[in-house]
């Protein structure tokens, strides 16, 4: 079992409390104190499952702004492109598909980075991350791809996640 660190508890507490405030959206003292107590309890118990690395990576402005750029600019463009592609396949009768599961190498070491990349891949229509694996220090994703156009390995990786990974590598190594 991993140890609970103070920054991890603090970060989880801030997240829970922010959600509480957003959901209730009332600023009376009573509500805020109740939310604080509940968030603290949740943070104490769940921080060690949640955060295993540096909790306040976004305190570095360069990383913060490249993260913002990724989530507001790079990722939505990829999302719209993939959505248009998928809509085209669906409206033309779902005939031109060629599904398969490919194994692609991933150049991210950090847990946050891998989670963000896997979720981004799954959110874009046409690709779903099914499994992760580590072999000899190199991380791999198994990705179900609706239209396999490149052989497994680096080429498929570039076709699926080239832009996404480049954007994420500026935030997490």
């Amino acid at each position: 079992m991993r140890k609970t660190t103070f920054p991890a508890i603090l970060a989880t507490f801030v997240l829970c409390f922010a959600f509480w405030v957003l959901l209730t959206w009332s600023f009376t003292m009573q509500e805020l104190i109740a939310g604080g107590v509940v968030s603290l309890a949740v943070a104490l118990f769940s921080a060690r499952f949640f955060i295993h690395e540096k909790a306040f990576w976004f305190a570095n402005p360069a990383k913060f702004f490249s993260g913002l750029f990724y989530w507001l600019c790079i990722f939505p463009i990829e999302l719209v492109k993939a959505n248009l592609n998928m809509a085209k396949i669906c409206f033309t009768g779902c005939k031109k598909i060629n599904p398969g599961i490919v194994k692609v190498p991933v150049d991210l070491q950090s847990e946050y980075g891998q989670a963000a990349l896997a979720n981004s891949i799954t959110l874009t229509p046409g690709t779903i991350t099914m499994e992760t694996a580590e072999e000899d220090g190199q991380n791999y994703f198994y990705i179900h791809w609706i239209d396999v156009t490149a052989p497994s390995g680096k080429e498929a990786g570039d076709a699926i996640k080239g832009t996404l990974e480049k954007g994420l590598r500026r935030v997490w190594k």
Binding site: N83, M86, A87, I89, C90, G93, C94, I97, P99, T122, L123, T124, P125, G126, T127, I128, H144, I146
Partner: peptide, 14 residues
């Protein structure tokens, strides 16, 4: 209309 379970899951992501 998709032929198998995984492709259906892909289409539903839209």
């Amino acid at each position: 209309k998709m032929p198998d379970a995984f492709s259906r899951m892909q289409a539903s992501t839209c």
